Amino acid sequence: MAKQAKYVYCNDLPSVAYATRTLANSPVLIINCEGRTIGVLGGALSLMCIGTERAEQIFVFDVLALEPFKSRLQPLFRILTNPAVKKAMWDCRNDFLEIQNEYNVMMTGIVDLQLAEIQARTTVKREGDYQHKCRFTRGGCSVPLQTINQNAELFFEVHRLQGMDACIRQAGLLTAGKDPEVVAMHRAAGSSIWMNRPLPPELLAYAAHDIELIGALYEDFKKGAWITPTNEPLLVAQSMRYAYSLFYQGRVPDDDPFGQAAVLPLDVLNESPGPKVQCHGCHRMQSLSCYSVRKQGGGFEARSNICRVCQIKLLMKRAKYPITWIAI
């Protein structure tokens, strides 16, 4: 078993008060949540884990135990909504949605490390177009390279997401990975195990260890110049758009073809000017550059009814949906 992380379990007001005083003195927080199918229809928050910079101190807030004391958590919420306090996260979308749903708190100052990894592919790793395409041919829900080449317009400036575990391995960090016993529990019983009380010590340690992993990556990314004082303000703006992308889409069933997939929504890295129209798949308002556009009879242009990312999701999930064309 992996070495267990040290943490403070916060399930009453005195422990929350201590945690809040400690977190208030940290310019950077590391945040990650656990729960039942968080971010999708039927999702529920169980734990909100927050660490200080470099994960030197970790606090595991028991959302269920603290349910009667929501009104007493305002000092903590003021930290979460303070844009001067950076919040390092990995794929912030689900956590942002669940914290907003549970506490009506909209976090600010997010630095999403998943986006930093994507930016580093071109700025640091110097990946070319071929490497960009090959990312879609590997892992779950892969797409054959021939299909990608036949639909090159769909994949233009669309990025395949990478998981935190893969990034930890590639970085060669000495930090231990995820506890295989807990991973096996997930596979056997699903994410509902997070809603049981009392939570086994293994699950609490697993949740705390994720804060250590994100903290290690954040420090590694800064050392490797993936995150710098120059690019961090832009990364925060991108991360906030990333957080709101799921918030605007809303919860959908886990098997929805336009639901979660390992592909970055468009209009996140770059906020395109001009009018925005609604995608019939993910229901997000997006700029015209996010859609397929073609000439119709009579010389006028039309756009696809679903955005390019949603079309890629159909290819990844081997799903069908009628593509129609709407005059621009």
Rank of each mutant, 00 (worst) to 15 (best):
E157L: 12
E157D: 15
E157P: 08
V158A: 12
V158F: 15
V158P: 03
L161D: 05
L161G: 07
L161E: 08
Q162S: 11
G163Q: 06
M164I: 15
A166C: 04
A166W: 02
A166V: 01
C167V: 15
C167R: 04
C167E: 02
C167L: 04
R169I: 06
Q170R: 14
A171H: 10
A171K: 09
G172K: 12
L174K: 08
K178I: 11
D179T: 03
D179Y: 04
V182I: 13
V182S: 13
V182N: 11
V183P: 01
H186G: 05
A188Q: 14
G190I: 15
G190F: 13
S191F: 12
S191E: 03
S191V: 06
S192R: 15
S192T: 10
S192H: 10
M195V: 05
M195S: 13
R197P: 08
R197A: 07
R197I: 09
P198V: 00
L199S: 03
P200W: 00
P200A: 06
P201N: 05
P201G: 10
P201W: 09
P201C: 02
L203H: 14
A205T: 13
A205H: 09
Y206A: 07
A207K: 01
H209I: 14
I211T: 05
I211W: 03
E212N: 12
E212A: 01
E212M: 12
E212G: 00
L213C: 01
I214F: 00
G215P: 14
A216V: 07
A216T: 13
A216H: 12
A216P: 01
L217A: 02
L217I: 11
Y218H: 08
D220F: 10
F221L: 06
F221H: 03
G224A: 08
G224P: 01
G224Q: 14
A225I: 09
W226D: 08
T228I: 06
T228D: 05
P229N: 04
P229D: 10
P229F: 05
N231R: 03
E232A: 05
E232K: 00
E232G: 06
L234H: 13
L234G: 09
L235V: 03
V236K: 05
V236Q: 09
A237G: 04
Q238A: 08
Q238S: 03
Q238D: 05
M240P: 06
M240A: 12
R241W: 12
A243I: 15
A243H: 07
Y244M: 04
S245D: 07
L246Q: 00
L246S: 05
F247V: 12
F247G: 00
Y248S: 02
G250P: 04
G250Q: 00
R251Q: 13
D255G: 00
D255T: 03
D255R: 00
P257Y: 01
G259D: 05
G259K: 01
G259E: 14
Q260R: 13
Q260T: 02
Q260D: 11
L264G: 08
P265L: 03
P265V: 09
P265T: 04
D267E: 10
V268R: 02
V268Q: 08
L269R: 11
L269A: 11
L269D: 02
L269M: 13
N270Q: 12
N270L: 07
E271S: 02
S272F: 11
P273H: 08
P273R: 03
G274L: 01
